[in-house]
């Protein structure tokens, strides 16, 4: 598909979807990467994939597949965010590894069942790699809804999230309601990742969560500036990745990932030359 054949009525929702997915994933990434738990994004998105796979096996299609995906994502997000691994003499990385491999195992088990049951796994594979065909205006409205919800939450709890990001123990010691704020954030994380799933795919979400935030941390100081920069870079990556994909006929997910990785490279170069 070349850009010259672009039909705006068809591709406009995809572009808007790319911008929204990039902005919301970039904003989430500020906290996920800021806490050095970027693997949380991978775990949650793959748990969503596992949920979607079994939803598809149960006969769900299109937007309905979001429900089991959301269930899988929420279970993973809450398990990771609320787990106290030190009680079991382990750490967060081990728990994340356990959940990630478990989710992947379930997802591939489910994928293996499609031919056995004589069903098509096309919809689910499209989720895994991201597909332009999935994004239409109803999807965009959904994405816009969760993006607004996320930004509203992040603006209203900016000072609490900042304190939690610095140290959950210190925040609790200072009388901040850590459990309420952190759990709400995790639920929103699961919601945003699941809804974005349709546009960029499970594997691509990880890059949009990690790369814009990493680039923002290289460029600016302060949590508000980091949040705005990461959201802007995420939106830019989502849009630019799509446009490159449209012009070159390359897979959209891959171009978005490579573009966002390139943004980190440029940010690192800029920082090294600024000093």
């Amino acid at each position: 598909m070349m850009l010259s054949t672009l039909d705006l009525a068809l591709w406009a929702p995809v572009m808007v979807g790319g911008v929204l997915a990039g902005a919301s994933s970039g904003a989430l990434g500020v906290y996920i990467v800021g806490m050095r738990i970027p693997f949380l994004g991978v775990c949650v998105s793959h748990a969503a994939l596992a949920g979607a796979v079994f939803g598809a096996l149960a006969g769900l299609k299109g937007t309905w597949m979001l429900l089991p995906a959301l269930a899988g994502a929420m279970i993973a997000a809450l398990a990771l965010g609320l787990a106290k691994p030190e009680r079991f003499r382990t750490d967060n990385n081990t728990v994340m590894n356990l959940l990630f491999t478990g989710s992947m195992g379930l997802a591939f088990l489910g994928l293996g069942l499609f031919p056995v049951l004589g069903k098509s796994d096309h919809d689910v594979r499209a989720l895994l790699w991201g597909s332009l065909n999935y994004c239409r205006w109803p999807d965009v409205w959904l994405m816009a809804g969760v993006t607004i919800l996320l930004f509203l939450f992040l603006v209203l709890t900016a000072k609490e999230m900042r304190a939690i990001l610095f140290s959950r123990t210190d925040a609790a010691a200072a009388g901040i309601h850590v459990t309420l704020v952190w759990t709400t954030f995790l639920i929103l994380t699961a919601l945003v990742l699941t809804v974005n799933f349709q546009t960029v795919g499970g594997l691509m979400i990880f890059s949009l969560m990690t790369n814009p935030a990493a680039a923002a941390f290289l460029l600016v100081r302060g949590s508000n500036r980091a949040l705005a920069t990461a959201a802007a870079l995420g939106a830019f990556s989502g849009l630019a990745g799509f446009l490159v994909s449209a012009i070159t006929d390359l897979p959209t997910g891959a171009t978005i990932v490579l573009w966002s990785a390139g943004v980190v490279g440029v940010a690192a170069w800029f920082r090294s030359h600024r000093r």
Binding site: V30, Y31, V33, G34, M35, R36, L156, T157, K159, E160, R162, A163, L165, F166, S167, D170, A171, A174, G175, I176, H177, L180, V181, A214, F217, V220, R221, G222, S223, A226
Partner: peptide, 24 residues
């Protein structure tokens, strides 16, 4: 430091006023 977020000194010090100000 366990996080990568470039929080400013003023932001860190302001955490002492966070709970007092109230949620939202």
């Amino acid at each position: 430091i366990t996080g990568d977020m470039p929080l400013t000194v003023r932001e860190v010090a302001s955490m002492g006023r966070t709970a007092r100000a109230g949620l939202f």
